[in-house]
Design a protein around this nucleic acid. Structure first.
Lengths: 334, 334
DNA sequence: CTGAAAGCGCTTACAG
DNA sequence: CTGAAAGCGCTTACAG
């Protein structure tokens, strides 16, 4: 790879002049500049971002820490991050933490060595230990859908309460009165908020909450299935089930099928996230769409503002959107 | 951020000595080294990868070009790449091309400026134009599932012919004789190979291929649905449909449902990829599992060998695995 | 064992 | 308008 010096030699000027010409500095004569640029082009000159970074003490690079990029939710978020980063001429360094504290420490250390200008974290399954570790990197941090945002200044999330209310209103308006909630037992903020939205919605319709209709899984299909089976064994089973997320609903779907029940005739199912798979289950899932890509773009945009020395909004809550599909219908009259 | 000089000052030694101590150079006295390391630790010293890169002329960084990281197939591949990269102390710079030649040129240019040591491409929907553009980066390149690998030296793919044969044998053994193929019309190598596997399998059983059973979509649900509808209008519709990929099968599933047919009683469906969604359709899809994560790991591993000056296997073909689920069953007797 | 020097490829204040 | 010099934070051959 030719350097600025090689070009200087060919052009018979100093490397300072080459540097200026390549940056369209007004100091350099039109002709000289054009000639130098032509030579650089012919030589296949590509400026070195590493040399420039050393001088400018900024790398135009951001670290993105995810539990795993194989997670479909995260993939869409990162797509948004990358697109916004690219528009602002930042590159994205991707790092999986696999929710493993040790690995996470390693990757954050590596990002630190690489002198990333900022860090985005979308590792919803990772807890409080995060803070100190990340703070060590000593650069601005923006969280996406984090479950413990309290400790950080900047975050992008979804309005869980409002979204849940929309889902509950939908179910209540369909005549459901016995609505179950299958949450996530890990103590995440998102679960707390969704559960809170659930309770408030019932209360606003003066329906008392039945403790036996509230169960907790782990956000994955197997536990959703187990919880649903338990619900079906009640003497008064629910006519609708609101699931913490689509993954849980996937398990519920299987339990329903195994039980020989019909959706939505026998039981309605509502979920959260709107993963791609939600459109292709049978029946397709009524769910809350999280604007995943938008969340990524927004988070990156906040980071860019921070890096520009601006004062961005610190806690952004984007609205979810109720997507009504075929898994919800009128309550069975009892 | 403290530099090596700051540590040197505090320790009362030269920065060369600090550098050596931090690298556990045998030249430095045990005590001095220990003292320096303690000081560095206390000061929160983090070595600068950018300065080191400038000296070593290597960044321990690889570029990963994808059409979009939101693609679930790609997400798993990249997960594999990242994990293997991490094990070898490489960082991953992620870049979406959105299959847009202009954007692609930009991101490859950016990777070039960042002086990545190598590039991995898993942008199966991108064509021949790739070559020159990528070659410009002037670093080793490894392709994953590329549709035009002919022009490149190193690639990781799947054994399409063998995998297709496995699927066809499965269907043939179930008694199917009228088996349709819904391919991808974009002229991809993978389509050519799968189609070839399809033909060979029929031939080996002395079944002649019916042209009306061979249709072409675009690898997405809508076109799969359209193709399936067309098949159902034949006077002798197929008893089984082999789809180019899971996405196509998703559309076929919808057409089948709309038609009021039962799977697999009326028609069996086989697919390719084994995306996550394939386990959760109704019925779950019989499909060929591509070892996505493994493909990513293998590709990165080849790149590491290349960067180490070794001579890795150049064209790796990993085996697919037939996953039999409920979408295939015995042929309806006619 | 330790330090001074050179150099990686740039940018930019300082002179002219 | 152009160049020589200094410096970004390291590594490493060369001296001692």
């Amino acid at each position: 790879m030719p350097s600025i010096k090689d070009i200087a030699r060919q052009a018979g000027v100093s490397h300072s002049t080459v540097s200026r010409a390549l940056h369209n500095s007004p100091l350099i004569g039109r002709e000289t500049a054009a000639r130098i640029r032509a030579i650089a082009k012919r030589a296949g000159y590509v400026p070195s971002a590493v040399a420039r970074s050393l001088v400018s003490r900024t790398t135009r690079t951001v670290g993105v820490v995810v539990t795993t990029i194989a997670d479909p939710f995260i993939g869409e978020v990162v797509d948004g991050i990358e697109s916004m980063a690219n528009e602002h001429h930042y590159s994205v360094i991707l790092a999986n933490s696999y929710a493993d504290p040790e690995l996470e420490m390693k990757v954050v250390g590596s990002l630190s060595e690489r002198r990333v200008d900022g860090i985005l974290v979308t590792a919803s399954r990772v807890g409080a230990m995060h803070r100190k570790r990340l703070a060590g990197a000593n650069v601005p941090i923006v969280l996406i859908n984090n479950q413990h945002p309290g400790q950080f200044v900047h975050s992008v999330g979804i309005d869980n309460v409002a979204a849940t209310r929309a889902m509950m209103v939908h179910l209540l308006d369909l005549g459901h009165r016995r609505i179950a909630y299958i949450g996530d037992r890990s103590g995440y903020l998102s679960d707390t908020e969704r559960f809170s939205g659930y309770r408030r919605a019932l209360k606003s319709r003066r329906i008392s909450m039945c403790p036996e209709l509230v169960l907790h899984g782990d956000g994955k299909p197997v536990e959703g299935e187990r919880a649903a089976r338990q619900l079906f064994q009640l003497s008064y089973p629910p006519t609708a089930i609101f699931c913490y997320n689509d993954m849980t609903a996937l398990g519920v779907l299987q339990a329903v099928r195994a039980r020989g029940l019909k959706i939505p005739e026998d039981v309605s199912i509502g979920a959260f996230d709107d993963l791609f798979v939600a459109s292709y289950t049978s029946p397709p899932l009524t769910t809350i769409r999280q604007p995943k890509r938008e969340m990524g773009r927004r988070a990156m945009s906040i980071l860019v503002q921070l890096l520009n020395g601006e004062k961005p909004e610190s806690r952004v809550k984007l609205p979810g959107e109720l997507i009504v599909r075929a898994s919800t219908g009128p309550a069975k009259s009892m």
